[in-house]
């Protein structure tokens, strides 16, 4: 699907000179060299492929960035404006583009983003079975445990949570799963069709805010387990609390460098003290994205440590 996003020249270069499986990110900044995250490390993009040297690097200009945003929006920026208000665009195939530019505010409300200046094109990779070793810590005779996945950005949280959903479906435990895919990152549904395999017992509610998703999702789909990515603020925390109090299990992710950083987050204090989560899985990219740093119980006792 990258061909529908990039310009023809850029796509030809990327597809011919770069191994797609190792391509994680393409970063474009106006009048700066194009960089790529290739196998977890950053390189410059040159006409010959990738290079550690800046000298031959291709430079992005504003027209290239605008064209990519236009392509990514399916030539309809107005149709993805609700995403641009949150500085991203989700495209077919689960490609996510982080967009920077000038925020347009009217009456104190963000109405759009214009004069796009930087892009982070993130290419998803489904890594099946990446969560397999953790599953045994998440289920016991009492059932499934509320789980929070903690990692810094780019360490594979979304890939991991997607795989948990897939594994739970595969285990045939008769759990009904609901993914709240606010940014179209987990299942990456396009026209109602999931671009990633999230399992046969999984429902997906895409593009909605977590607070809405938790409330309406529980009412309408009666899930056993809800999955959501990147809980951050008090609204999200409240939504998780609502779900747990409703008897629904939750698997969520959040950004933090490590466990102690997470424990210091103010917005999570209630959830930590109330022991809403039974399991904490800490990931890092120290040995590539998805490296298990540890699995902890609700009292932060280590069940598995690297």
């Amino acid at each position: 699907m990258l061909e529908k996003v990039l310009t023809r020249d850029l796509y030809e270069l990327v597809s011919k000179k770069i191994e797609f499986e190792k391509l994680y990110e393409l970063r474009l900044r106006v009048n700066s060299p194009i960089t790529i995250n290739y196998g977890g490390k950053y390189y410059y993009l040159t006409t010959n492929g990738i290079s550690a040297s800046e000298s031959d690097a291709l430079v992005a200009d504003s027209s290239l960035i605008e064209t990519i945003v236009f392509n990514a929006s399916n030539f309809s920026i107005y149709a993805v404006n609700y995403m641009l208000q949150h500085c991203y665009i989700s495209c077919q195939g689960g490609i996510r583009i982080g967009v920077c530019g000038e925020v347009v505010i009217e009456n104190g409300k963000i109405i759009t983003l214009k004069n796009f200046s930087q892009l982070n094109i993130r290419i998803p990779h489904q890594v099946k079975n990446c969560s397999l070793n953790a599953i045994k810590y998440l289920i016991d005779e009492t059932g499934f445990k509320n789980t929070l996945i903690i990692s810094p950005p780019g360490a594979g949280k979304t890939t991991f949570i997607r795989d948990i959903a897939y594994q739970l479906s595969n285990l045939n435990l008769a759990y009904n799963l609901l993914i709240l895919d606010e940014r179209f990152e987990i299942a990456s549904a396009v026209n109602g069709v999931n671009m990633h395999d999230v399992g046969k017992f999984t429902d997906v509610l895409s593009g909605c805010k977590k607070s809405f998703g938790f409330l309406e999702g529980i009412r309408s789909m009666r899930p056993d387990i809800i999955f959501c990515d990147e809980i951050a603020d008090l609204d999200d925390v409240e939504a998780v609390r609502f779900a747990v109090n409703s008897g629904v299990k939750v698997v969520a992710t959040t950004h933090a460098f490590n466990l102690s950083d997470f424990r210091a987050k103010k917005s999570f204090q209630d959830l930590i003290e109330g022991q809403f989560f039974d399991r904490y899985i800490v990931l890092s990219s120290s040995e590539g994205p998805g490296t298990y740093e540890g699995i902890f119980d609700k009292k932060f006792i280590c069940l598995y440590c690297r």
């Binding site: 605008e66 236009f70 030539f75 920026i77 107005y78 109405i111 759009t112």
Partner: peptide
């Protein structure tokens, strides 16, 4: 200009 801005500007 079609498709290149938000609804209001379109």
């Amino acid at each position: 200009g079609l498709g290149k801005s938000d609804i209001n500007n379109q």
